[in-house]
Simulated scan of single mutants.
Amino acid sequence: MLQLPQALLWDHNAHYHPWLLRQVPQRCSRVLDVGCGTGALVRKLVDRADFVDAVDFSAEMIDQASARTSATNVRWLRGDVLDPDLDLHPEGYDAVTALSSLHHMQLRPALTRLASLVRPGGVLAVIGLYRSESAADFATRTVSFPANAAVGAYLAARGRAGKPHDDGMPVQDATIMLSEIRDAAREIIPGSQVRRRLFWRHSLLWRKPV
């Protein structure tokens, strides 16, 4: 990826917060955020849910997230969401979100596990990274580069550029391709929607049948 000047860097993950929030019911009982990082999305989810469980494998991320969050309806869990012994709610969640965390896990086990944590009628909403392979992927990348710079310049001019949530955050390049994600989703969660997005991201949306 071409690197913007430091002054023009901005938070791609935060760009997709509105999309994720639109998938979550305006009012629900329980939400799970997988790979919560420093808790930026969690601090918005707390207004939608009675209880939010926030999971991250990194103890440093959990420490930062809890220190930055004053809400009392959050439970911070350090661990691997694929671990069957992780203390998640036995009745599942009205919404499960995952932002730039799916590519840190094995794809099929992760989709199977996340789907199992969604209550009937609930939603799984994912924004993830993927490795480019097709002509459409590279065409989207071509558009993403100038759009990335334009958004960075726009935010910088308004004093809103920067990546405030990146300190100590684990970084891993995506190795799974969009075609693999689509194939796995079609097999494991039929009816899900996987779409290519700008800024090197894809979305995955699935509503569990009642």
Rank of each mutant, 00 (worst) to 15 (best):
V118G: 10
G152K: 01
Q64P: 00
R30S: 06
D53L: 13
I188K: 00
W76G: 00
A59M: 05
A125D: 07
Y130N: 13
H12D: 09
D33M: 04
G122H: 00
H103Y: 12
R119C: 11
L82E: 04
V194E: 02
K163E: 15
R197A: 14
R68Y: 14
A54S: 12
I176W: 04
A149N: 02
R182A: 11
K44H: 15
F145T: 13
L178P: 01
T175P: 06
A65Y: 15
A157R: 03
A174H: 06
S192N: 05
R75Y: 01
S179C: 06
T112D: 05
A125W: 00
A40F: 11
R48M: 02
Q172D: 10
L107C: 03
M61D: 12
A174T: 13
Q106S: 14
A150H: 05
T140D: 06
D166V: 11
G35A: 05
M61A: 07
A40M: 13
D167T: 13
I176S: 05
Q193T: 04
A185F: 04
M1T: 07
D63W: 10
R113N: 03
R197Q: 07
A149S: 02
D33H: 07
V42Q: 09
K44V: 03
S134T: 15
I188Y: 01
L198A: 11
R30P: 00
P209H: 13
G152H: 02
L204S: 15
R201L: 01
A157G: 10
I62F: 03
Y16N: 13
D137L: 09
H104I: 12
D83N: 14
G121M: 00
D173A: 14
H202I: 00
A49N: 05
Q106D: 08
A49G: 06
S179W: 05
D183K: 12
R27S: 15
R196Y: 01
P190H: 04
I189V: 07
E60F: 06
A157P: 02
V31S: 01
A174K: 12
G152Q: 01
V171T: 14
P5T: 00
S101V: 11
D166G: 08
R158C: 06
L9W: 03
G37M: 08
R186T: 15
D47Y: 15
S100F: 08
P170A: 10
E91H: 02
R75G: 13
P164D: 02
L117T: 02
D166K: 08
R78C: 15
V42H: 14
A40R: 14
Y93S: 07
S66I: 07
T142G: 12
A153G: 07
F199Y: 12
D167F: 14
L8C: 08
H165N: 15
R131M: 08
A174W: 12
P209L: 08
A110F: 15
D167G: 10
K44L: 14
R201S: 06
S192H: 12
T112K: 15
V34R: 07
W76N: 14
W76T: 11
A40I: 11
W76A: 04
R141G: 04
S203P: 00
V171L: 10
D11I: 11
W206M: 02
R119A: 11
H103S: 10
R131A: 08
